[in-house]
Design a protein around this nucleic acid. Structure first.
Length: 686
DNA sequence: CGAAAATGTCATTTT
DNA sequence: TGAAAATGACATTTT
């Protein structure tokens, strides 16, 4: 489904809520209390618009309205509004199970938050708890993006789940628990159910997301505060929340949607598969909420973990480590470091390692059955994903090829680096969670393979130097545990094949073929410097680096906190890039010169031909003139007579022009030698 | 697979 | 005098 235009033009904030529902046969009540991450200055009573026009209001807010935070709103699944409330409950229950093909559907509800007009003010000084305000008419469209994911699950009859997304369970664990009621009403046996949920949010909320780590630590307190807010909220609100919900359950107008519905929704947008719980989308929520939410009942929802957006594959694996996710001890000891890395690295780079997958969001939420299942998957992951080619990336936080290029860079540019300062292979043991391979080029240029291993495995720069990089690529530098292991243990090494591939990449012919095996399509299209830059997470484009004026370039280098290695690489990139362009220009010029010379040759040859033709024509003209002169000469002599009236012989006399232009007849013996010769010649020709 | 062309890179010179 | 461009020579990649 597409957003309608008004969604983007009404000045509100877009909220994404993803509800991931697991198990095959379940009946879902999506009359929810939602806890959403709201943008700053969200107000109590602000209206939440769904794309189908459904509205809700923010009924509770976290204590940080000015900077964004958590808020609660009641929200019916959009599908509910399309159902006939008068239909018997059974008709709204999920009964359809795709035989043998259980799946985990999810629904993404896109809601549009419209800031309150009445309570809003320009500078954002809003009252934390206010009265419900009339909201401006904001979004108009509404819709649901459905996604589904195949997942094994046992069979069973339909069941009902009352899924209140966050804290609602705690508030409403009364005997009149809607779950039970719904289940009974539907007349279906309840079985183990899980509802997985992730909350995704719009880019406006990134800052909120970034502070997730500290938020997690404060989660318990936060959650308590939230609940206090709920407790403190105006009576009308509490009443409304509970009552309206209770009412719906009681009167049988509970809104349900079937898996069938879901499936239709899902199949309408297959491209949204896995979208819902990608790590990046999952918003931070207090993990501690979990504790109160884990319900002993089978069909209660383990929302806490579902909401724990920050749960990574690493954590998931650790969670499972005491069960089936355990490797053969011998194998473990044979590659202890690798194992550690395998456990940790996905945390550092989950989005890259498993793009689009929702494992990180998925695994921690499942209970035993699903967990065992997941453990199997994890074990496969362990084997398949974390193979030797990934060890380097696991060790360094870089992709294998990135490391390869790091090595290549250090070897290739030896002696060329600038700005070396040097603590090359020392290990910085800090409490920082950020670790990265570092070494200035001058020192790294001397690295043997042994040193390189050290560099790859355990050398990290000071966190301060990474500030900029962290801004740009945070995900690469998480995973304290992994790097603590790595940095404290220098004995780990690359797999021979991996090392071989990197060491060979220095200057061996065919290295590109070896390297290209590790490249994805995107990387393969990059130039070497671009790949190097990517490997070192240079925060500028190669083009920028090369084309930037020198002043800007220098100020850029000083402005950003870059490691020596990065600075060196940037300078090398600039030098090479400039030289590359210069070489291209030089060759072009050289080619131009050659072409110009060829043109010159051609034109000169043509000119030569022309001159030859002209010469020939001149010769012809001269000959004609001579001919004419000869005829004239003979004609003149034929008319000449001496004193006795006899004809004058041209053999004895010649005609000669004087300086005054007159013509005289001169005896040949009196002629100047030159003239005589000329005349003789002329006479001979005739 | 090898040859040739194109391109990249480094060292050095020129501007 | 230093930076940048130009260029020769060699390496690497592409055709």
């Amino acid at each position: 489904m597409k957003y309608l235009k008004p969604w983007w033009s009404d000045g509100g904030s877009l909220l994404h809520l993803t509800i991931l529902l697991s198990l095959a046969e379940l009946r879902l009540d999506l009359d929810l209390d939602l806890y959403l991450l709201f943008p700053p200055r969200t107000l109590l009573g602000d209206e939440l618009l769904l794309r189908n026009g459904q509205t809700s209001h923010i009924s509770a807010l976290s204590p940080f309205p000015a900077s964004g935070g958590w808020g609660r709103a009641e929200l019916l699944h959009p599908k509910c509004w399309e159902r006939d409330p008068a239909a018997p409950p059974e008709g709204r229950l999920l009964r359809e199970v795709r035989a043998g093909v259980p799946f985990i559907p999810s629904i993404r509800v896109d809601a549009w938050l419209v800031h309150s007009v009445a309570a809003g003010d320009a500078d954002g000084a809003h009252a934390l708890l206010g009265t419900a305000a009339a909201s401006s008419a904001g979004g108009v469209g509404a819709g649901v993006d459905g996604v589904s994911q195949a997942a094994p699950a046992g069979g069973g009859g339909p069941r009902a789940v009352q899924s209140s997304l966050l804290v609602a369970e705690e508030e409403e664990k009364a005997p009149a628990e809607p779950t039970a009621q719904v289940s009974d009403a539907g007349g279906h046996a309840s079985e183990e159910n899980e509802v997985l949920r992730g909350v995704s949010h719009s880019p406006q909320h990134e800052e909120n997301e970034q502070r997730s780590s500290t938020q997690k630590e404060k989660s318990l307190q936060q959650k308590n505060e939230d609940e206090n807010k709920v407790a403190d909220k105006p009576a009308w609100e509490a009443e409304k929340t509970t009552e309206s919900r209770s009412e719906r359950y009681q009167n049988g107008t509970d809104a349900f949607f079937s898996l069938e519905d879901l499936f239709q929704l899902l199949s309408s947008q297959p491209e949204n598969l896995l979208e819902g719980v990608s790590l990046g989308d999952i918003a931070p929520l207090p993990r501690s909420i979990n504790d109160g939410m884990n319900s002993p009942t089978h069909y209660n929802v383990n929302f806490s973990q579902a909401i724990s957006h920050d749960v990574s594959l690493h954590e998931a694996m650790l969670l499972c480590s005491d069960n089936t996710f355990r490797r053969d001890p011998a194998a473990r000891t044979s590659q202890p470091q690798e194992q550690i890395l395998q456990l940790n690295s996905p945390t550092t780079n989950t989005e890259q390692t498993l793009p689009g997958t929702n494992l990180t969001g998925f695994l921690p939420f499942v209970d035993n059955q699903m967990r065992n299942l997941s453990q199997d998957h994890l074990y496969d992951l362990d084997i398949n994903i974390l193979d030797e080619t990934n060890l380097m990336s696991l060790a360094t936080g870089f992709d294998p090829m990135e490391v390869s290029w790091l090595l290549e860079e250090t070897g290739y540019d030896s002696g060329l680096s600038l700005d070396s300062s040097n603590n090359s292979t020392s290990v910085i043991k800090s409490n920082s969670s950020h670790s990265i391979c570092e070494g200035d080029t001058s020192s790294s240029s001397d690295l043997s393979h042994h040193d390189l291993q050290g560099a790859v495995g355990g050398y990290y720069p000071e966190p301060s130097k990474l500030r900029y990089m962290n801004d740009r690529s945070d995900s690469h530098f998480h995973g304290d545990l992994a790097f603590q292991h790595v940095s404290h243990n220098h004995t780990y090494h690359l797999q021979p094949s991996a090392l071989e591939s990197t060491s060979e990449s220095f200057s061996m012919p065919g290295k590109s073929q070896k390297i290209s095996r590790y490249l994805n399509d995107t990387d393969r299209n990059l130039s070497r410097d671009e790949r190097r830059a990517k490997a070192l997470h240079i925060p500028f484009s190669v083009d920028e680096i090369i084309r930037m004026p020198v002043d800007s370039f220098n100020s850029m280098l000083s402005r950003h906190c870059l490691t020596d290695l990065q600075v060196s690489l940037i300078r090398d990139i600039r030098r090479r890039g400039k030289n590359k362009v210069a070489a291209q220009n030089c060759r072009k010029r050289k080619l131009d010169v050659i072409l110009n010379l060829e043109d010159d040759v051609c034109s000169l040859q043509a000119k030569k031909e022309t001159l030859k033709r002209e010469q020939s024509q001149c010769h012809k003209a001269i000959n004609i003139m001579k001919q004419k002169l000869h005829h004239l000469y003979r004609d003149v002599f034929s008319r000449l007579r001496d004193d006795q009236g006899r004809p004058v012989s041209p053999n004895q006399y010649a005609l000669q022009c004087t300086h005054d232009g007159s013509v005289v007849i001169v005896p040949k013996e009196l002629m100047i030698p030159g003239q005589k010769k000329e005349n003789q010649k002329g006479n001979r020709k005739r």
